[in-house]
Design a protein around this nucleic acid. Structure first.
Lengths: 350, 350
DNA sequence: GTCCTATTGGACACCGGTGTCATGCAGCAT
DNA sequence: ATGCTGCATGACACCGGTGTCCAATAGGAC
């Protein structure tokens, strides 16, 4: 009785009870089949699986979540970082989640607020999240990682350096990548190279700066403090930071900007000052956002595999679910590539 | 018994039973308080509410979802459209959802696949979604809207024209906005104006084209077919489409590109041909993405209030939940603004 | 004071899964 | 034949809420 609404909705709304009845077994046995319990008779399993396949039955996630105390949701926690990165990350994670029972819930937070911690705790505990992916700079917060651990919430941190156990970390080697980029500038003949650094408190900013300094040190090039300008990873900050570099005499012949937005700012500022790129100024950015190929000249940059890293992060999370130890072999470290475009040339003979 | 794990996890994991016991009422009464049932004694309500406040109790969403057959999740369904738009939309929706019990689940789909429909159906029925927001071009699919209706899933469609009841629609008036932009070009003295149209099958492309044609018609300017080039809303398509316009004699003195990506392509192509912008060619795009201010010269464009529209869409969805008819007054139509930047100037005297 | 009705609160089943433990049964040593 | 062991399965409670329906209580009409 009270089951006559077969015709109303499109979906027959099968439950585990229906399957159990059809297979003439208990619902618990069906549950065992779904969860691949090893202590099942082969015949029984086949019989139930056949019926599940025929009927297209899918277990109700809400009921599972309630019974298990854990949802099949992955959270993506981020603060502001650049739009392209968030989107690429989403894409990578979703690729990994595609075809699984997991869904992605996104959660921007305000790292400045003193409620972030409570906010995130509420988020993961209320929703009984299966796990979360943390994007920088949230991923650099050790207290946050500790809290998630206490809450029994899995997590993977994206970063520019390995800050945690490999199982919790997906990182790109920014330092080495930047060092490579700067070595390239040096090989082109540049000696006065400016840096537009990222904001304090961002690990990526620190790593990139260290890579920059390292390459210069290797080459025995001294680095006066004046060649380093502070930026905020925004176009505007790149614009104003480059002004201070342009005012130097002699002017730097090349500038490494810690991300593409700021590199675009440098290019824009150069254009306003009538400084020809790349003839009078070479520029390299970081991220390989689409922007780099929309401006003129196209910007050389460092490409890091965001989508692949997002995919790896998600696989790490759900891999620990499947628990097949051998499967959880997602790498923790990804390497970046220098992309050479027209914004770099040898310096003019001065 | 079996409740001694108070100290292990951070969270005491309060349930409705705990609250009921503390308030010395039945769990059903607590449930009534939570759901603001009107037939409750004022004293009882106050007593229970006080305890809820003190303890910080929050109902378990999984249990609610199971019992209600409906989850407190909003889905965002989109195909490919441009990254900036997706992100701004997410931002708007999340702003509206902030502080509510709703979370946002994102779901990219492939509109080309013949499984989209099943995919989305599975998504909304399995997760028992409260409602979904559809981004163009998915939002233009009437069959999809019908299916969602059948599944009892609320939805709001984002679009460039009103395609549905206002309660299901949040639209920008692209046609009029483009007409305005083109009128501006005409007022500047342009007569040979090229159009780079968007892809067939996108309503926004059609609306923008109609707006373009309308402005020319109003001004009594004829529009030879050769002045219209097909684009795909991508930078590359803008690049190649503009080539064909540049080959015309006489060359158009202005081009309206149906989005910013393509406008950037026009700018890039002009640069490669040595055509000066805006002296020899004016350009207007559409969307007001950050890109427009990163290139040189900055692009004039049409700004539509994506974030506000996203917010409105979400409020429409959850407004129907609260059911307070007067609250659901989110507008369905948003207007756009012409943003004037350096990419437009009067045509050179020829 | 009695009866009727409206209001308020509670008992209970239910949503659809999973965990625990008991049970049935076959295979083996004794 | 008996008892023990181990495997496959089932019965039942439980996760934490909500809907239904009924009981208790209070207030008003008579």
């Amino acid at each position: 009785m009270a089951k006559q609404n077969q015709d109303e909705g499109q979906a027959p709304k099968l439950t585990i009870n229906d399957i159990a009845r059809m297979a003439d077994v208990s619902k618990k046995t069906v549950s065992r089949v779904i969860n691949r319990s090893p202590l099942l008779n082969r015949e029984t399993r086949d019989k139930v699986e056949a019926i599940i396949r025929e009927t297209g039955y899918v277990p109700n996630p809400q009921a599972r979540a309630l019974a298990l105390g854990r949802n099949f949701l992955i959270g993506l926690v981020y603060d502001n970082p650049n739009a392209q990165m968030i989107l690429s990350m989403q894409r990578g994670i979703l690729e990994a989640l595609h075809g699984t029972e997991f869904e992605l819930v996104i959660r921007p937070v305000d790292r400045g607020s003193n409620l972030v911690m409570d906010d995130i705790r509420g988020f993961v505990t209320r929703q009984r999240l299966f796990g979360v992916v943390l994007l920088p700079p949230m991923s650099e917060n050790d207290a946050l990682a500790r809290m998630l651990d206490e809450q029994g919430c899995r997590y993977v941190r994206m970063g520019s350096a390995v800050l945690d156990d490999p199982e919790h970390m997906v990182a790109s080697n920014d330092k080495e990548a930047v060092a490579d980029a700067v070595r390239y500038l040096i090989a082109q003949g540049h000696r006065r190279i400016g840096l537009i650094a990222g904001p304090h408190g961002f690990r990526s900013a620190q790593e990139r700066r260290e890579g920059f300094e390292q390459a210069l040190t290797e080459a025995g090039i001294s680095l006066p403090r004046s060649l380093i300008a502070d930026g905020q990873y925004t176009f505007e900050s790149g614009l104003s930071a480059s002004e201070s570099l342009f005012d130097l005499t002699p002017r730097p012949t090349a500038i490494f900007a810690s991300n593409d937005e700021m590199a675009a700012g440098v290019l824009y500022a150069a254009r306003m000052r009538g400084i020809a790129v790349p003839e009078e100024l070479s520029i390299i950015g970081f991220d390989d956002t689409p922007l780099t190929t929309r401006v003129w000249p196209p910007l050389s940059t460092v490409r890091w595999p965001i989508v692949a890293m997002g995919r790896a992060a998600a696989l790490k999370l759900i891999g620990t679910a499947i628990g097949e130890g051998s499967e959880v072999n997602e790498p923790s470290m990804f390497s970046s590539t220098l992309i050479r475009r027209a914004s770099v040339a040898p310096p003019a003979i001065s």
